[in-house]
Amino acid sequence: MGGAGAAPDREAGERVSITVMVVDDHPMWRDGVARDLTERGFDVRATARDADSAVRIAATVRPQVVLMDLNLAGESGVPAIARITAEAPEVRVLVLSASGEHSDVLEAVKAGASGYLVKSASAEELVDAVRRTAAGDAVFTPGLAGLVLGEYRRMAAGPPDDSPRLTDRETEVLRLVAKGLTARKIAERLVLSHRTVENHVQSTLRKLQLHNRVELARYAIEHGLDQEPPQ
């Protein structure tokens, strides 16, 4: 969805650099992304190569955006995302992944990631995505929209419970995102403001994340895990 509103002028970007942390087990990739972002005026505060150090460093450094690969030396990055967003709620996590790992991406978003970008995205798309993530927007690819849409459909097909539902408008917006329309095009087509479209997209993620947290808490209480973890 890039486009409108996503290009604050360079000076503004440099005056208050967005702080970023890059988590990837692949050194070539980690350093490449860090370099790309530094060149474009971002403040890359830290890098990490595994889940544990990612959580530890993110809690100390508190960057605005954590760029996170989902596959960390054979270990899933999803639990780390849940821990980062629980310990430092102001930190936003943007998943940067080589895709092809569908349920993983959905789990990451449910665990609290506020967006997803494929690794093959261009440097401009990456910069745009990081800026929008820092600004609090949800960064959706058509692939992610398809996954989120599928997840709501799966919940709606199940037994009636307190799982969240999409409004008709949210469904409409999400389907258009999944079909590759930009936020600007969607706003045009549905005669809405660009901001309203962004809000609808964000809302679909927030409901999913809230539901996920409630489910986890319920599970923890039912299994007597609701005490403080030893760490």
Binding site: H26, A73, G74, A98, G100, K119, S120, A121, A123
Partner: peptide, 22 residues
Amino acid sequence: LARSIHDGVLQVLARVGKRGRE
């Protein structure tokens, strides 16, 4: 196999693609 392809070949290809386009 998928994991090892993902960790190796895919990462390199993605990087080559991205850098090359730039």
